[in-house]
């Protein structure tokens, strides 16, 4: 059963997550509609990755409630896709590109299932979309940073979810991969999917995202880029570690730490 498009993709209520009783994310409440590309911005240690791991139930939370397409997360596991940071896996692992992308289908297979021809076709299409079919039979240890990210994104595509969380997909990738990722984000949005992206590059935030979450332990602001990407809110998020300049066209140039 597909949820109506007016149902929010994600609702988070009063989420608090602590390491060693020290809160890293505090009292975050958000409602993200369907069909948006949302960036999470904030300084290092602001809890950006922690927030998405908490939302996905990968970390224990102190309290907080998560609803996905109006229901429990456990009821929408197929719809929710997580793309972890590249560094979170061992790239020397003996596995080929094709096999990693096929892992995107494992969520539907359960403990005993075997991938069908249909699963393989979907994995193949995802590789084609990310331009890595030629690398299908290579071991992942041979991939460059950009190629690794394309492998991760192809795997995410193969999951065919409607709500995606990506943790720092732009870190350490080449310019053409970055462009390919942005194109993919916008295409997904146009299909009505929702993508939440942890990012820390302020320069590109305005072009890449529809909406922004400004986070520094607490939620500083959430809304359309135009309303949120302002000097007062950004300096509130980044504290003193931010400089705002104005160029000759009176455009704000913001340099973050």
């Amino acid at each position: 059963m597909r949820a109506a498009t007016t149902t929010p993709a994600l609702e988070v209520r009063d989420m608090t997550i602590s390491y060693d009783r020290e809160p890293v994310v505090e009292g975050v409440t958000l409602t993200i509609p369907q069909g948006r590309v949302v960036g999470i911005l904030g300084p290092n240690g602001a809890g950006k990755s922690t927030l998405i791991k908490g939302v996905l139930g990968l970390l224990e939370t102190d309290h907080g409630e998560v609803r996905v397409f109006g229901g429990e997360l456990s009821g929408s596991r197929q719809e929710v896709v997580y793309v972890p940071q590249r560094g979170s896996v061992d790239w020397d692992f003996p596995v080929t590109v094709k096999d990693v992308v096929l892992m995107g289908r494992y969520g539907r297979l359960g403990l005993f299932g075997r991938p069908s021809a249909e699963d393989r076709r979907i994995a193949w299409e995802a590789m084609a979309k990310m331009g890595i079919e030629a690398l299908a039979d290579r071991q992942i240890s041979e991939m460059s940073g950009g190629q690794q990210q394309r492998v991760f994104l192809a795997r995410a595509l193969a999951q065919e979810g409607r709500l995606l969380f990506m943790d720092e997909p732009f870190v350490g990738v080449d310019a053409s991969t970055e462009a390919a990722i942005v194109e993919l984000l916008h295409e997904m949005r146009d299909q009505g999917r929702t993508v939440v992206v942890v990012n820390h590059d302020l320069q590109t935030a305005r072009e890449y995202f529809d909406e922004l979450i400004l986070l520094n332990k607490r939620l500083i602001a959430y809304g359309p880029v135009k309303q949120v990407f302002t000097a007062p809110l950004l300096s509130k998020t980044y504290g003193g570690r931010l400089a705002v300049f104005r160029d000759h066209d009176d455009q704000e140039i913001i340099v973050g730490a």
């Binding site: 791991k53 996905l56 990968l58 456990s74 997580y82 972890p84 979170s88 990693v100 892992m103 969520g107």
Partner: peptide, 10 residues
């Protein structure tokens, strides 16, 4: 290979 994804898959 990827315990986090495995956990996310339930």
């Amino acid at each position: 290979f990827d315990p986090a994804l495995a956990a996310a898959f339930g």
